[in-house]
């Protein structure tokens, strides 16, 4: 069965099934947007947490670490409650839209990007900063340079964030609703197809998910060797 399913999967991919492409593109769009937002929030936050001691730093670090392993479905529930008709921002009518899914995935990815960036920045020798200052760098320039020094680690944080976002099921199902043609992404489609016994389609989708992850990480590794 596995073989025939795989063959069918290959057929679907080669044929370029339009419904399939819709799902793939939505997955990439939602998770890509979530990654971009998570990077915009998580990289500065990680630099801030990692560079200078301040009151409440240990507390915030604990919060970030907890967020890195937090059950996604709980985040889905919170976003659901936030966006539901009776919720605080229910008027936006975002529930069961890709926007809601981007929100959930961003919340999921931010602690990962923040936490890994923070530890990468802390791994840069603190003695570098006074040297940069004495070479004439301003505070802002110093932070930028330290982040550039920590680029390998920051990249790992982005990989982890994207991985968490694109592989998420529960939260995305809750707030997106797995609506065909609107909010169905690879993971939620796999769940549906498996439940309905269409293992070949489920496998095809799984294969694509795997390929996407492979391609994305191959690009990252190439970038990493270029950045050294």
């Amino acid at each position: 069965m596995l073989v025939s399913a795989l063959r069918h999967a290959l057929e679907l991919i080669v044929r370029g099934d339009p419904q399939l492409w819709e799902i793939v593109l939505l997955s990439l769009g939602v998770s890509g947007s979530a990654l971009l937002l998570a990077a915009l929030i998580g990289i500065p936050a990680g630099a801030w947490l990692g560079l200078r001691p301040f009151r409440g730093q240990a507390w915030l670090t604990t919060l970030v670490y907890t967020g890195m392993g937090f059950p996604p479905v709980v985040i889905g529930l919170l976003v659901y409650l936030l966006l539901s008709r009776q919720g605080p921002v229910g008027a936006l009518d975002w529930l069961f839209t890709p926007t809601a899914m981007i929100m959930a995935q961003t919340i999921l990815a931010v602690p990962l990007v923040t936490g890994v960036t923070m530890s990468a920045v802390r791994a840069v020798d603190p003695a570098l900063r006074p040297q940069l200052r004495s070479l004439g760098a301003t505070d802002r320039q110093i932070v930028r340079t330290v982040l550039t020094e920590a680029r390998q680690g920051v990249l790992v944080g982005l990989v982890a964030g994207f991985g968490a976002a694109i592989s998420e099921v529960g939260a995305v199902m809750l707030v997106g609703g797995n609506i065909e043609g609107r909010t169905r992404v690879l993971t939620t489609a796999i769940v549906l197809e498996t439940r309905q016994g269409r293992f070949d389609v489920a496998l095809a989708l799984a294969a694509i998910l795997f390929l996407l992850a492979l391609v994305a990480n191959a690009l990252v590794v190439r970038l990493q060797t270029r950045l050294r």
Binding site: G136, A137, R228
Partner: peptide
């Protein structure tokens, strides 16, 4: 000031020497 031990950026020699001028 040149601190001790020497602090270098993970960049080329040229980019290291250019740092102070660039900032």
């Amino acid at each position: 000031m040149v601190v001790h031990p020497p602090q270098l950026l993970r960049r080329s020699v040229h980019d290291n020497v250019a740092y102070g001028l660039r900032v």
